[in-house]
């Protein structure tokens, strides 16, 4: 193509230019909802705990371990009782988000039991809860319990709670006695068990 033939360039690219203008307008007109969306920036130490709908501040907080109050929840447990987070006020609470038939979650189950449940047996200031982010029925969560042999309460239909906590399945979250999130895992539960154990012991002063 002769690059000096401006007229033909313009006509052949007219459609393209129109489209790009439209794209630009779509991008720049987008609402504040995507302000903390991912763009071409490298990850920093900023937190993922700011709630998008209530916090329009485009610059996330910079501290690594902020005191964020743990969102409350009420969920039905496998045993059929309503479990509230507030039932455990003044306790250190560990939340294990899992998926009822998620293989990695099932694989890590026994380790969660042996390192984050049984060592704290009998402590009145500690509680670990499992939350099914995959919203399975009681049969599937029961099967999770059977194949992992976990003893702690398992709560059903926790997908929305996971979104409130900005987390997903196969993740660990630690809540201190004042009801603040002090640890929110960014990698698989198996990779975070050691860090969570340390954190819990620190909080319990043991």
């Amino acid at each position: 193509m002769n690059i000096f033939n401006l007229k033909s360039i313009f006509t052949s690219n007219l459609k393209l230019i129109v489209i790009l203008v439209v794209i630009l307008s779509v991008v720049s007109c987008s609402g504040s909802g995507d302000d903390d969306a991912e763009v071409f920036t490298s990850p920093t130490g900023s937190t993922g705990n700011s709630n998008m709908t209530t916090d329009p501040d485009p610059d996330p907080e910079e501290s690594t371990d902020p005191e964020v109050s743990a969102p409350s929840f009420t969920l039905k447990s496998l045993a059929g009782v309503d479990v509230k987070l507030s039932d455990y006020s003044n306790k250190v609470v560990v939340l294990f988000f899992f998926g009822n038939s998620c293989p990695i979650c099932k694989a890590v189950g026994p380790k969660i039991e042996s390192e984050l449940a049984s060592p704290f047996d009998g402590r009145s200031d500690y509680q670990i809860l499992g939350l099914d982010q995959w919203n399975g029925n009681a049969n599937s969560v029961e099967a999770f319990k059977t194949s992992t042999n976990v003893s702690f309460p398992l709560l059903l239909n926790a997908s929305e709670v996971a979104a409130d906590y900005k987390t997903t399945y196969d993740r660990l979250v630690v809540i201190d006695k004042s009801g603040n999130i002090v640890f929110s895992g960014k990698q698989t539960a198996s990779a975070d068990i050691a860090a969570v154990t340390t954190k819990v012991n620190e909080l319990l002063g043991s």
């Binding site: 489209i19 439209v22 779509v26």
Partner: peptide, 10 residues
Amino acid sequence: RALIIVVMLF
């Protein structure tokens, strides 16, 4: 609406 326009243009 802009999205639909983009799609139509493509």
